[in-house]
Nucleic acid binder design. Structure first.
Lengths: 346, 346
DNA sequence: GAAACCGATGCAATCGCTTTCATCGAAAAG
DNA sequence: CTTTTCGATGAAAGCGATTGCATCGGTTTC
């Protein structure tokens, strides 16, 4: 339907329909109002008179005007844009959360700039810098940045939201849960199921380490010997399963359950175990993390730890909204908790 | 290391260290040069004298200056930012490609705005609009937009790159391959393996339909009866497997191979088949699409169609570079092809 | 009927950079 | 020794919006 004719028209004196894209002023001229009014119409239609609005709408249609957000953001010194920083896109535990956030942000007229930090601190730093340079309204990150950047962020008006984690003293605010508690609960759960020799697969990430820590402590507090362990690189993924399974088969005292850092890895282990003729969970239990959609659909279904990505997304949105209204935060840490979901694989 | 002291300093007359973030001018004053020089230093260090550069660097350090990209982009009317539009983040065939693109873009100082279009044309349109409003250098999309938007894009200076597809007349340029050819090759391949009754799982997307079309045509040209089919919603994912497998079991003439729209679905089918006691590929072949990392790691490994995501990413980067230099394109369509990778599952 | 108010709009000053053009001293060319 | 050339810098005009303040009819209010 929208089918703007060839730009030009019965424009006033200046035949300004050159080649450059139409500006607010062009629209204003066309609608015979000031550019201020057009701006108001665009940002707050309520304040302009019905009939004027109609004229402006027509002028926009006619000229094929597209607002220049760069100029608008500069003038208003806000960007309607948030940055999301995650380590990876493939094999990410966060995709579900991100997908929801992006959806909600977009729906509320914000845009999302995405940055992949990898595991390098430097990349994170430079991405934070880029985000600050764009004057984003908020930076959502799964990890902390360096101290240098922390202070940059602190000095700026930007809200820094760390998700999936609850550091002692967050730079901005944190929305997440205690990975140590998660590790502890997993230990208790496995103990309650009568498992004797868990094998931990941990990646070299702060979060994974915290879970491991929680697990170790509790497991030993429950009177067991320390569990065995495999280390994998980040991110924890399906493909790691072969090596991990090989590790296990090589051990003298075979583990009776494997605690994985992600559901994808858990899935991989199930596949490996089955390929080797083992039954899950009878011969080997497998526990995932993150409660990805697949865990409910795998055979056997995977026991996992659920983190409410939707809740995190909502809290993030709420935090941004509060921040934009200039309100303060009741608490700088929001614990969204986690839930161990018992299914068939353990 | 970077540890900017409390902003203020022995600044000249104006004690302008108020509360607002430092600007170019602040840095300039501090370094006793004009703001133009600081700007030059930032964008093209080569043109400023060694010693001046040092002073500026120091001033930046001292003030904790972060350039305002909004202002910069407005002034130079380019944004060093590209938009990437994909249907979903979870279960996306494109993640690998996107990850590479984001990596390369970031490395070359560009930022990436990500948009999730879902399957709605409207969402796509409004995201394109948002991208144009931000005056992105390029919009990379896996699908076309509406006509209305097409003309907006055409009118703008923005490069529109459609990936993973090769439409007759791309709006901007297209980097992809023929899905119809892929379907055809799959048909030939299965025929050459002696399969008789393929079952197609297709989603209601143009690309999936094109592949199906190619498959149907070739399969029948080879003298076979039309294959059976299951329809699933987008995106094609692991979880669809249960229903699809149930479909198959219910059929009178059981298929001997299932052609899936993604490796995740293929994985799901293998899991279902095995859970039902079937052996893959002996009792049932399974063919994936996209050559995700898992396909080489599954048991059995999954025969799939590989699309060179890295190549697409490179071509995209090259196209953007060419476009930024104002050069024209030799061709508006770049065929990156595809490769059928035979593994164990078929 | 004058004062106060109000909704709708215009004027013009920003926002923080980039970039053209001009300037200026020093080195190279004549 | 003058004239060019050149490298380094400054002055200032935008870039395209937003927004505080002023204006101006027309209502209300008393």
């Amino acid at each position: 339907m929208t089918k703007p004719p060839p730009a030009s028209s019965n424009g006033t004196e200046q035949g300004s329909s050159a080649n450059r894209p139409p500006t607010l002023t062009d629209v204003a001229r066309e609608a015979k109002v000031s550019s201020a009014t057009v701006s108001r119409f665009l940002n707050n239609p309520g304040v302009v008179a019905e009939e004027t609005g109609a004229r402006i709408r027509a002028a926009i249609e006619l000229t094929g005007y597209i607002p220049n957000a760069l100029a608008g953001d500069l003038a208003s010194s806000k960007s309607r844009m948030v940055a999301v920083l995650i380590p990876h896109l493939e094999h990410s535990l966060f995709n579900d959360m991100i997908e929801r956030m992006v959806g909600e942000m977009t729906a509320s007229g914000n845009n999302v700039m995405i940055g992949l930090t990898g595991t390098s601190r430097d990349r994170t730093d430079s991405l934070v810098r880029a985000a600050l340079a764009r004057r984003v309204d908020a930076i959502i990150s799964t990890g902390p940045a360096s101290e240098a950047v922390d202070s940059m962020v602190a000095r700026s008006r930007t809200l820094f939201i760390q998700v999936w984690e609850l550091p002692e003293e967050p730079v901005g605010i944190a929305i997440g849960f205690s990975h140590e508690d998660a590790g502890r609960d997993i230990a208790r759960f496995l103990a309650s199921r009568g498992y004797q020799r868990p094998h931990l697969v941990t990646a070299d990430s702060p979060r994974a380490q915290a879970r491991k820590q929680g697990f170790f402590t509790e497991w030993q507090a429950l009177g067991h010997a320390p569990p065995s362990e495999s280390i994998v690189d980040m991110p924890t993924r399906f493909g790691h399963a072969r090596r991990v399974f090989a590790d296990i088969r090589r051990m003298d005292e075979r583990p009776d359950v494997v605690v994985c850092g992600s559901d994808h890895l858990a899935q991989g282990l199930i596949v490996e175990a089955q390929a080797a003729g083992l039954r899950v969970p009878d011969d080997l239990g497998v526990l995932g993390f993150g409660n990805n959609a697949i865990s409910g659909e795998m055979r056997p279904t995977i026991t996992s730890v659920d983190v409410d990505g939707a809740r995190i997304a909502r809290e993030v949105m709420a935090a941004i909204a509060r921040h934009q209204e200039g309100k303060d935060f009741l608490s700088r840490k929001i614990d969204v908790g986690f839930r161990l979901i018992a299914r068939e694989s353990v």
